[in-house]
Nucleic acid binder design. Structure first.
Lengths: 237, 237
DNA sequence: CGGGATCCCAAGCGATACTG
DNA sequence: CAGTATCGCTTGGGATCCCG
């Protein structure tokens, strides 16, 4: 369509092109969910309860045209990321980390999805710290979703507690001895935010082994809008 | 406005919240330009030639409400990032890097702005490699913009060749001896893309010292959609 | 003259109904 | 289950106008 050109930003720039491709409303949330593995149309619709079905349909088409996702040939209504789509992981992870700093309290009618929670854990995971700790399974219950995060060495393996939807490559932890140490936590969404940001506020109220809770907060952390030490800080002038 | 709630995604999630705050059309391009330092309304309008003036005005208001930018008190029409806004740098940098992989050829009517080029260089800068090379100034002419990038050790200092608009903290290189080695390059936008992505295609046609060109391509590089080795790769299942 | 505000139209979004 | 069709509403685009 000619609209594409008209909707562009008129700039030959990386950011502009990226936003043209994946900046439409809902698009990056779809990508985030697909970063957890292949999903069916109905899975996405369930994970994103407020997305209108025509918009989901439009976005899936556009993301296919952009080469970000493809259909899973063997599954009706199945979609998965292409390699290019997987390249968006740093983008989505950066958004996730910044977003936690401005999360605030949950609005009424705001829900927590299994995919969003799983992605948050993966974005918060600190492999270097985890490598120094014993193997542990964390079972989280947040609002109406539950998932299990198994940490062995520097690796993290997250899966919903119910069970997965599409046949995925079997979780790695099924191939190995599962750690005996299990921390089961039931927390409100905002309390999880405090836990992950290192705020001590939520911790004392948790009815769980304090040492394991400490292990959790050291393994998973999202700094509140870190000023990002790195190449880009240099020479801003 | 009550629209804000209605326009939300209904999810208590970092990505969702981030996109609600800075996902509106043009918003991240404004942030990108402000990552180069404070800018006036007219600077932004000139950097983003296709933005309607009302949209620029709306976005600036929204970004202020979101705590991402603030006005510069001493300068009429001046805006700058807050600390929270600076926290978006990893987001914009990740978009920039992914965007280069899908840049393609410049569309007709697509332009290159000084701010976008400067940001691309900063996103492509590899401080660890630069630290091993002698101090060098690179003067780039791409389409109708020109800028100077001074690399000394692991630090990069980019400035437009004309001159800056708002009084900025003086560029660091003004305080130090400027490197005598200067590489001046005049390249088409798409050729710069090839240079930065490490493709050898553009190099032989450059009329410049091959060793300095090599130094440039080692100092500045954007891998074409790297599969990002890191925490998030682990345990996708 | 730079920094915005107003207007109108077109395009995109959201809700619901409907079909293979 | 996996979408398509339709319709009203909201937002963005472009030009113009206003104000200090």
């Amino acid at each position: 369509m000619a609209t594409r050109a008209a909707r562009g930003f008129g700039q030959y720039s990386g950011v502009a092109r990226a936003v043209e491709r994946v900046g439409e409303r809902w698009a990056l949330l779809i990508v985030r969910d697909l970063l957890g593995g292949a999903r069916r149309y109905s899975d996405l619709k369930a994970s994103l309860p407020r997305i209108p079905t025509n918009i989901l349909s439009d976005r899936l088409k556009e993301l296919q045209e952009a080469g970000v996702i493809r259909r899973v040939p063997t599954v009706r209504g199945g979609y998965e990321l292409t390699e290019l789509g997987h390249g968006l992981e740093p983008v989505v992870a950066a958004l996730e980390r910044w977003g936690w700093a401005v999360l605030g309290e949950p609005g009424e009618a705001e829900t927590v999805s299994s995919d969003s929670l799983a992605f948050a854990l993966r974005a918060a995971f600190r492999p270097d710290v985890a490598a120094t700790l014993p193997p542990t399974e964390y079972v989280l219950h947040v609002a109406e979703v539950s998932l299990s995060a198994i940490v062995v060495g520097a690796t993290l393996d997250v899966a919903p507690v119910g069970q997965g939807a599409l046949p995925q490559p079997r979780r790695r932890s099924a191939l190995e001895p599962v750690p005996q140490t299990v921390l089961e936590l039931t927390v409100a969404p905002a309390a999880l935010r405090d836990l992950l940001s290192g705020t001590d506020a939520a911790r004392p109220r948790l009815d769980a082994d304090p040492e394991l809770v400490d292990r959790f907060t050291r393994t998973f952390r999202i700094e509140p809008a870190a000023p990002t030490p790195g190449a880009l800080e240099v020479g801003v002038a």
